[in-house]
Nucleic acid binder design. Structure first.
Lengths: 121, 121
DNA sequence: ACGGTATATAACCCTCCGGTTTGATAACCA
DNA sequence: TGGTTATCAAACCGGAGGGTTATATACCGT
């Protein structure tokens, strides 16, 4: 379980991969679809997908040549469960973090790039 | 903003650093105290602390020669806020998460005075 | 069977990371 | 003043990470 969190957090530490996850939150997508928005080669994106897959954050099916990617949110839940262990500390330091969090809530949307309305906002 | 999450998740991706945070959750500690449980040199631990400090997860005071470390949970909250954007996806496949979600939701409402939509499920 | 599309693999860069050992800095204690 | 304690800084090393280009693989459509 060490290792799970290791892989999960490491996978989330890259903005390209977080953007891929945000895109996948809107539904399945192929590798080329996922690669399109980025200014990098297709193999680079494939590597990112491999990292996400190894972390269990993405699974892939098969549709002819295409290999559609799907979000697997299990590891995200595990990560959140781990973070929840520090909830009390957020609360302690909350008052002086108030401003920061307000700012964060607005900038949050940019990073989540259209990842459906349901969540944090 | 990307960079914050980059540094935060990258810092959390190492089990030694997570252990350090867990230790600091119980109160301040000096570098040597933090280094004691680990089978690695003190400079290695200092390096980990620097990573945590750069990520804003740890701050340090000064007590004579000692440089006590203190947990700063702000980035953890930031990370959780990001993860919360995927709440709906966890919920799809994991009903046993209800307890955690309820707990988180009630905290959010208390802390943020309903600024966040309660619409998740 | 052929050409095009979608994706993976290989080989190769360069940088960053986690660890080491050694030596420097700074503050206490006598 | 000298010695001890606590911590940092520098130099180094092996390996992993993120990127590239070029090439192979697999499947479709005709």
């Amino acid at each position: 379980m060490h290792t799970d969190l290791d892989a999960t957090f490491a996978a989330l530490a890259d903005p390209t991969r977080r953007a891929i996850l945000a895109r996948l939150a809107t539904g399945e997508a192929t590798v080329t679809e996922l690669a399109a928005p980025f200014a990098m080669s297709q193999p680079a994106v494939s590597k990112h997908l491999r990292v996400l897959e190894r972390a269990g954050l993405v699974s892939r099916g098969r549709d002819a040549q295409r290999r559609p990617c799907r979000l697997e949110a299990g590891p995200l839940r595990e990560a959140t469960t781990w973070l929840a262990g520090y909830r009390d500390h957020w609360a302690e330091s909350y008052q002086r973090l108030d401003a920061l969090l307000d700012e964060l809530r607005s900038t949050d949307q940019a990073d989540q790039a259209g990842s459906r309305g349901g969540g944090a906002r």
